[in-house]
């Protein structure tokens, strides 16, 4: 075990898989000498050389398009998109090409590629360095979407993503890159995709959250406990394909659910969770499923603290599952 930041764990996962498998290559803007704008790839070029870790020209479309070509050829590309906000020039390559490769070729060609990108608010980044656009990708069949919330999960899930046979969007909550630390197993460490985690057991209300929001929900749960309310926090870890059982069995137990996500509320991931619960376990519900989410606005700069879900809003959301 080693104590690491989430960022350090991401770095460790890539280094581990690059040692294990010479098909793994890491590339993107500024990932070489600089080691990435956040430092996620520090040391990789020194250890593995410029064939395995390299800077690309400034073209997200080029990064993903060529990554697909490498994956189709039999490599294991790990492409970094500097901020998720800058992924849209590559959107076509992701949704039209990577996501459909296996299906359209009858399984002859596949695209085992990982697209890593920091996402989310809370770093004073304004519109273009803060967005949480996981829902666009969740809505595209053929893409797996993974979001870690702890260093150990970051390492284990990233290694699992690199080993996965299909394209994975691996979204990293940059707000907690350095602020969340934890014990991480050394060397080989795999956390299987599509398996959620009960972060905290409770009996009164299920709170579903992922990424940085998990930590705010933990704070909310502390406060709720003081008021005699016992929240159960479930982190799905893989948004698609989802571990439905872990959520449904929790809701069956608590009879209540709040989904917390920082993306705009409308058509966000919480809507999917709410619909799933309504379809499958409505008879267990004691109150409405509530979404605590960002506003349906572009991400602000000066007012980002007003925009982001916080402890107060989460507790109000919980309250609404009791009184409506």
């Amino acid at each position: 075990m080693a104590n690491m930041t989430l960022l350090g764990a991401v770095n460790d996962a890539m280094a581990t898989e690059m040692r294990n498998d010479d098909r793994v290559v890491v590339f993107g803007e500024d990932v070489g000498k600089k080691g990435g704008v956040f430092g996620a790839t520090v040391g990789l070029q020194d250890e593995f050389g410029t064939d395995r870790c390299f800077d690309t020209p400034l073209s997200e479309c080029g990064i993903i398009g060529t990554g697909i070509g490498m994956a189709v050829y039999g490599m294991r590309p790990v492409a970094e998109i500097q901020f998720l906000d800058f992924i849209y020039p590559a959107f076509d390559q992701i949704v039209s090409e990577a996501a459909k490769m296996r299906y359209r070729s009858g399984g002859e060609y596949t695209c085992p590629m990982v697209i890593r990108s920091p996402y989310g608010g809370g770093i004073r980044g304004g519109h273009y360095h803060s967005q949480s656009s996981e829902a666009y990708f969740c809505h595209t069949p053929g893409l797996k979407v993974v979001i870690p919330s702890t260093p150990a999960d970051a390492k284990g899930l990233l290694i699992a993503s690199i080993r996965d046979e299909d394209p994975v969007m691996f979204l990293e909550p940059k707000r907690i890159y350095r602020t969340v630390k934890g014990e991480v197993p050394e060397g080989e460490h795999v956390v299987p995709l599509s398996k959620g985690r009960v972060v905290r057991e409770g009996t009164d209300c299920t709170v579903v959250a992922y990424g940085a929001m998990v930590h705010i929900c933990e704070q909310a749960a502390e406060q709720a406990a003081k008021q005699g309310r016992n929240l159960e926090i479930v982190d799905p870890r893989t948004l698609v394909p989802l571990d439905e059982d872990i959520i449904l069995s929790s809701v069956k137990k608590t009879g209540r659910c709040v989904v917390v996500y920082e993306a705009p509320k409308t058509c966000g991931y919480g809507a999917e969770i709410a619909a799933l619960i309504a379809e499958q376990v409505i008879e267990y519900l004691e109150g409405p499923v509530v979404r605590v989410a960002g506003f349906d606005t572009p991400f602000p700069y000066a007012l980002e603290n007003l925009y982001m879900p916080d402890v107060r809003r989460i507790l109000e959301g919980v309250q609404r599952t009791f009184t409506w």
Binding site: F295, N305, L306, E316
Partner: peptide
């Protein structure tokens, strides 16, 4: 409505919501 319920109604200010991590 989302704004009224969450911010205006709750009297929230920019000082709220600082993430103490």
């Amino acid at each position: 409505r989302h704004y009224d319920d969450t911010i205006a109604g709750a009297g929230a200010t920019e000082a709220d919501g600082h993430f103490p991590l």
